[in-house]
Simulated scan of single mutants.
Amino acid sequence: MKKTVINNSDLHFEHKQWDSELAFWNDELKSFKNRLSELVTRWTDKDVLAQLEHYQNEFILHGNVIADLQETIEKHEMNISHHSDEGHESMDISMVNTHTDLREKMETQRQIYADLKKEFFQFLSKYM
C-alpha cells in the first residue's frame, strides 16, 4: 500500500486560493447590496420589496458564511504553520481530515453562492 504525503505547502496554496475567492465574494456582495439600495428607491410594489428584503437577508447570511470560512481557514493555516515550526512538512491524518472538510465546505458554498447569484441576476433583469 502506497502512503500519500500531503505537504504543508500544498495546503497553504489551496488556502490562498480560497482566501482570494472569499475576498472576491465579499466585493461582489458589496456591489449587490448597492444594487438593492438603488432598487429600493425605485419600487413601492410590496412583492418586489419583499424580494429585495429576501436578497438582502441572503447576502447578509452569505457574508456571515464567508466570515466563518475565513476564520476557519486562518485557524487551519495557523495549525499548519505551527506544525511546520516543529519541523513537520507533512500533515497528520486529523489535519488532513480538517482540510478535506474545509474543502467540502468551500465546494458546497461555491454552489450555493453560484445559485444565489444566478437567481439574483434573473431578478435584476426583471426589475432593473
Results as ranks from 00 to 15, higher is better:
D45C: 02
K105T: 06
M91L: 13
I60V: 11
V40P: 03
H99Q: 01
E107F: 08
R42H: 11
K117H: 04
T44M: 08
E53L: 13
V48Q: 05
S90T: 08
T100R: 14
L52R: 00
N97R: 10
H83Y: 00
T41D: 11
D45K: 03
E58A: 10
L61C: 12
K46R: 15
H83F: 00
Q56A: 04
V65Y: 12
E74T: 14
Q56N: 04
S90G: 04
E77I: 05
I112Q: 08
T98S: 15
E74R: 15
H54F: 15
T72D: 06
V96P: 08
V65L: 07
Q111E: 15
Q56G: 04
K75G: 12
K117N: 08
G87K: 00
R110P: 11
V48W: 05
E58T: 09
S84N: 07
L69V: 02
E74C: 13
T108F: 11
H82Q: 12
E104Q: 08
I93S: 08
L102W: 02
S84L: 08
A114F: 04
K46D: 10
F59P: 00
S81Y: 13
E74W: 12
I73D: 01
D101L: 07
S84R: 06
T41W: 05
D85W: 06
K46P: 07
G63S: 03
I66H: 03
